[in-house]
Simulated scan of single mutants.
Amino acid sequence: MAIKVLIVDDSGFFRRRVSEIVNQDPELEVVGMAANGLEAVRMTAELKPNVITMDIEMPVMDGITAVRKIMENTPTPILMFSSLTHEGAKATLDALDAGALDFLPKRFEDIATNKEAAVQLLQQRVRALGRRRVFRPVSRSVTPARSTFSSGLSSTQSPVEAPRPAERNVGRAAVPTRASGKPYKLLLIGTSTGGPVALQRILTRFPADYPHPIVLIQHMPAAFTPAFAARLNSLCQIEVKEATNGDAMRPGCAYLAPGGMQMMVERAGVSGRIKVVAGTPDMNYKPSVDITFASAAKAFGGDVLSVILTGMGADGREGARLLKSAGATIWAQDEASCVVYGMPQAVTVAGISSHSIPLDNMAEAILRESGRG
């Protein structure tokens, strides 16, 4: 059965263009098109699509409000289309907080280097989200530490709850029940689709005196990473900043890899140093989890705790393999709590990760392992 898609945009031309692309894929079927958020809310209830593509700026009802209402009434996976501007970044992050699962640039030339690749990526993202199920928000205990920010994902909401698959005998405990006692010098976290919300859920639980530097690699455009770092910094007790070349890493500070660049870590001084370089055109991911993880394996060896969160593809697997060979600890997010079980699956199936941990338990597990539990 084809994945049913609802397309929402106030531009008739853009609705038709996206509809043509979606319908080219035999696994996808456009079941409706809406010109504003209010129509989207009504048509979602009537048509029960498997996935929605949603514009942000629309008349009558904007996309962020529509996402929030859909998630309250008929929860459905939503892919946002966004402009690659500072304001577009902030609006997209608001939409993700409200419950959207993923986003793509609205200009197709910004999605990929050629038209065919852009079409394939859009179809791939819609297919991946269309296979997920979401449920109504449930109570959580995360409390933002330095902000009264309350839209979307608040201290009492979680817009995405994936169905728990049948238990599998994977030969590892779901959550480590006690700390290994191993000393660490660095925490690495790599993620992609679903990562902004996952990182917020984890990092808002960290105390200001978390004992190690934290390095974050999130697949995200260059226009988005400054706004995302600023948002995390406003919500967390730890400091969060977009990394710059030459940053001396400090305990209790998280360094977000800049979009469109590659970030590496070097052994220098007490805690190490950040190196940021331009990514070459042939690299699929900028930033790349593999590149950052590989540099950490060289610089810090086994003194690293590494986590792979929700995301499409397999970025991070080879870097994690190098880290494990050096004696580092590798964990993955479990399938049930992932928006897309791609990157965590890659390290799990390869036997690289030692534990598959639900998102709700990840912060607690990291703090325990880091000596702060």
Rank of each mutant, 00 (worst) to 15 (best):
I78F: 03
L96Y: 05
L104D: 02
P77H: 01
V51H: 00
V67H: 03
F149E: 09
I56Y: 06
E39V: 08
V138M: 11
D55F: 09
S150D: 12
K48C: 04
S150V: 11
I78H: 01
M43Q: 15
G63K: 09
R131A: 13
F103K: 05
A117V: 07
T74K: 07
L129Q: 09
P77C: 05
E116N: 14
T92C: 10
R131T: 15
P49W: 02
R107V: 02
A128L: 15
A145S: 14
L84R: 07
S151W: 07
S147R: 08
S151L: 13
S141K: 14
F103S: 05
L93K: 02
L104C: 08
N114L: 02
T156R: 14
G152Y: 03
R131M: 14
N73R: 14
R127Y: 04
P159T: 06
V67Y: 03
T76Q: 06
D62W: 01
A112E: 13
V134R: 06
L47I: 03
A40S: 08
P137K: 01
V51G: 08
A162K: 05
V119P: 00
L101F: 06
P77E: 05
A98W: 01
P137R: 00
I70E: 01
P137T: 05
P75Q: 11
P105Y: 02
G63Q: 10
E39M: 13
A145C: 11
T65G: 03
E161K: 13
T156M: 11
T85W: 10
P75R: 07
A117R: 14
A40T: 04
M71R: 08
R140A: 09
L47G: 04
K106P: 08
V142C: 04
S155A: 12
A145N: 06
E161D: 11
E39S: 04
L84F: 05
T113L: 11
D94K: 15
L47P: 06
R146P: 00
S151Q: 10
G88W: 04
K48H: 13
T65A: 15
I78L: 10
S82G: 07
M58I: 09
V134S: 15
A112H: 07
G99R: 04
K90F: 05
R127E: 02
P75K: 09
E87M: 08
S147G: 10
Q123I: 09
S158K: 11
E161S: 15
M61C: 10
E57S: 12
F81E: 05
R146I: 00
A89V: 06
N50G: 15
K106S: 13
E46P: 00
G130D: 10
M54S: 09
I52T: 07
R107G: 06
I56R: 07
V67D: 02
F103M: 09
Q120M: 13
K69A: 13
P49I: 03
A162G: 15
S141A: 15
H86S: 14
V138G: 11
F103C: 08
P159L: 03
S139F: 11
L93Y: 11
F81I: 08
H86P: 00
P159H: 12
Q124W: 01
V142Y: 03
P49A: 11
R132Y: 00
